[in-house]
């Protein structure tokens, strides 16, 4: 589903954000990107969304080399990748329902499709009775649920989450993770950058650890702290925990 080969990103001024990253993420996987601030997690997510271009290397998403994607095709990439952020990125002047339907309206979906799809996804995130509320009338956890609903309403095969629980208390975070787990079990590939030890330890999913711009660990069913299986540079994960 996602493949990175020798991906390096150097920002203006010579700051290396990620260096020689090789990664294979299979369809339906749930992958945590962990590591300290500045280790390159968010840069990887930006590269996967083509918000940034690689300095070197190749990234394939759903079989397409997105590093060579012309500018006019970038929106098509983003339609197949849902995004969830720490700061929710909701529109304050739109209701919950409008925030979610906005994602379908900008794609030109007919009203007959938008209504039922929004209703369905609001049920999925447990906000079916709050469609008429404004973001300011919701708790942080509920706002993040709206953000997830908006990311998933178009049923993208990939969900990228950048610290989605960063602004939430532990109990609310658990609710959000249950929701992401449910979405993952419906077949979507989820890649989540996080600092949250408890969540990573509790979920026991694949963990890719970055440090100083490099992948230093890639472990199936891992924990936040260093696990048993060290990452070998240039290694290929085959999705079942073994090194290829």
């Amino acid at each position: 589903m996602i493949r990175l080969r020798d991906v390096t990103k150097v920002y203006e001024g010579g700051t290396v954000a990620v260096r020689d990253v090789n990664l294979d993420i299979q369809k339906g996987e749930f992958v945590f990107l962990v590591g300290p601030s500045g280790s390159g997690k968010s840069t990887l997510i930006r590269l996967l969304l083509r918000q940034d271009t690689v300095t070197r290397g190749v990234i394939w998403v759903a079989g397409k080399d997105i590093t060579q994607l012309p500018a006019w095709k970038i929106p098509f990439l983003r339609r197949s990748v849902g995004t969830v952020f720490q700061d929710f990125k909701l529109l304050p002047n739109k209701t919950v329902g409008e925030n979610v339907s906005f994602a379908l309206e900008v794609l030109g979906r007919p009203r007959s499709v938008v209504g039922p799809q929004v209703k369905q996804v609001l049920e999925l995130v447990g906000l079916n009775d709050k469609g008429d509320r404004y973001p300011r009338q919701l708790s942080g956890g509920e706002q993040q649920r709206v953000s997830i609903a908006r990311a998933f309403v178009n049923r993208p095969p990939i969900l990228l989450c950048d610290e989605p629980t960063g602004n939430l208390d532990p109990a609310t975070s658990v609710g959000i993770m249950r929701l992401l787990d449910r979405i993952n079990r419906s077949g979507a590939t989820v890649v989540m950058a996080t600092h949250d030890h408890a969540i990573v330890d509790a979920m026991q999913r694949r963990v890719v650890q970055l440090d100083n711009s490099r992948v230093i660990r890639d472990e199936m069913a891992g924990r936040y702290e260093t696990g048993e299986i060290p990452y070998q540079n240039g290694g290929r994960h085959n999705g079942d925990g073994a090194e290829a």
Partner: peptide, 16 residues
Amino acid sequence: RDEVSIMKLVGASNWF
């Protein structure tokens, strides 16, 4: 600008 950035994130084309 927030709406525009969200529109871009959800895949709206530049012309849209």
